[in-house]
Write a protein that binds this DNA or RNA. Structure first.
Length: 423
RNA sequence: GUGAGUAUGGCGAAGUGGUUAACGCACCGGAUUGUGGUUCCGGCAUUCGUGGGUUCGAUUCCCACUACUCACCCCA
């Protein structure tokens, strides 16, 4: 092996492409049902976009970006997530000038420089959406509902939304103050990560896996963000939950949920499957558009990992996509003299919309029939010098075993008739 | 970034410091004439991730590298 694929990348081979297509089809269909329009933005952007958009203190920006300098000396970065680019495009193309709100979705590869492991690659795929232009809690609910619905439609069982509110520029600083007041006195007892978090983003301490840190939070009486919400945020969160209940969306709240991106305000959620982990996450980001230079515009969105979906589907079993028959006719060439004739027969079939193939290795008729079987062809067409002389073909139904010789001019009709009968 | 494990033909998988590296699947060929899915017979790794070292000799021992897997961190 001279050169192999870069670490953390994978080749999606024909054998599994069906599963991908199936997910993509469901995603496009459901986004259409909810009236979202597709948007495609560049795979790389100026590094600054992610630094500002995603947040300077996030793991993504601090240590996971694929950043490089192009020949013009610009610092570019392979997109680590979808939101920043979409918002940039929204602002740059002045989509806010169009009537109504913008409901956008995307689908494609993302890149993060991390150590690969199960369900984590350096190039992975996400689909997601962004809704710009409304702060209505109905929209938060719609987006969460859609998030769960899509996974159900794809075949994932037990997808649940875990919901929290991370507050707004009014309650967030207030909460931060309270956290500092309670935890600064016991700072030295926190783990080193959390000592850092205390300064930069105290909310994240709730997310720490360290038991001692969690105990300290309780002992110090540190309030969760949910307990510190301002009246507006609380009302918003309550409304979102009412909608979700009315819609029957499976969800639960978790005051400790913190997302890895800094731009979230108010509603934040992850979609989890018991015993598996997180498939996707999302939230509201009311300040992001303005931070990226656009007009004050509220937004909500989510992203979902497609590799993760594939993993859950595999674990939950049974969803192996049916082996699709992708060949209708196999043309067996009986002797070399008929080779050109065989090509003509194939062209005739293919141009009539029949999926047809032949042997190119000069194998025996017996071997060609074996191949026809293996490829899943419905019928075999045998052509040899005798057929060619009469402009005929020998057609064999590989299911019934029936065989007959007919004029070439009748072949397409005969094939189509059989196709219809087998539907 | 930290820690652990693995690396033998297309796939799965034995194995040993020393003449021909099991086996299964897949694949290819054959079992009389231009015909399939079963069965039978035969074929299919100058080579054991890469590069060094120890040795009379290494796929088996040692070192480095690379890749993969898993866990942690974090997340999709």
């Amino acid at each position: 092996m001279l050169v192999q694929r870069p670490r953390g990348t994978s080749d999606i081979l024909p054998a599994t492409i069906g599963a991908w297509r199936q997910i993509e089809d469901v995603v496009r269909r459901t986004f259409a049902e909810y009236h979202y329009a597709e948007i495609r933005t560049p795979m790389f952007e100026h590094t600054e976009l992610f630094a500002r958009g995603v947040g300077e203190t996030t793991d993504i920006v601090e240590k996971e970006m694929y950043t490089f300098e192009d020949r013009g000396g610009r610092s570019l970065t392979l997109r680590p997530e979808g939101t920043a680019g979409v918002i940039r495009a929204y602002v740059e193309n002045k989509l806010y000038g169009q009537p109504g709100i913008a409901k956008l979705f995307y689908l494609g590869p993302m890149f993060r420089y991390e150590k690969p492991q199960k369900g984590r690659e350096r190039q992975f795929h996400q689909y997601g959406c962004e809704v710009l232009g409304s702060d209505s809690p109905a929209l938060d609910a719609e987006v969460v509902a859609l998030h769960v619905y899509q996974l159900q439609e794809v075949g994932v069982q037990g997808a649940t939304a875990v919901l929290n509110s991370v507050g707004c520029p009014v309650c967030r600083p207030r909460h931060r103050e309270q956290m500092l007041a309670r935890l600064l006195p016991v700072k030295d007892q926190l783990c080193s990560d959390c000592q850092n978090r205390l300064e930069r983003n105290p909310l994240r301490i709730f997310d720490c896996k360290n038991e001692r840190c969690q105990r300290l939070l309780v002992e110090a009486g540190a309030p969760t963000i949910l307990e510190s919400l301002c009246a507006d945020c609380e009302a918003h969160f309550a409304a979102v939950r009412r909608y979700l209940e009315a819609l029957g969306v499976p969800y639960r709240t978790d005051a400790h949920l913190v997302r890895g991106l800094d731009y979230y305000t108010r509603t934040a959620w992850e979609i989890k499957v018991e015993g598996f982990g997180t498939l996707g996450g999302g939230g509201r980001y009311n300040a992001l558009v303005r931070e990226l230079g656009g007009p004050e515009t509220p937004g909500v969105g989510f992203g979902t990992g497609m590799e993760r979906i594939l993993l859950v589907l595999a674990e939950q079993g049974g969803t192996s996509p049916a082996v699709r028959r992708d060949l209708d006719v196999y043309v067996a060439v009986a002797d070399e003299q008929a080779d050109v004739y065989a090509m003509q027969v194939l062209k005739t079939l293919r141009e009539a919309g029949v999926r047809a193939d032949r042997d190119y290795q000069g194998r025996s008729v017996k071997a060609q029939f074996k191949a026809a079987d293996r490829e899943g062809a419905r019928l075999a067409v045998v052509v040899g010098s005798s057929e060619q002389a009469e402009q005929q073909v020998t057609v064999k139904d590989l299911v019934s075993g029936e065989q007959s010789t007919i004029p070439l001019s009748e072949l397409v009709a005969a094939v189509q008739k059989l196709e219809e009968a087998s539907v």
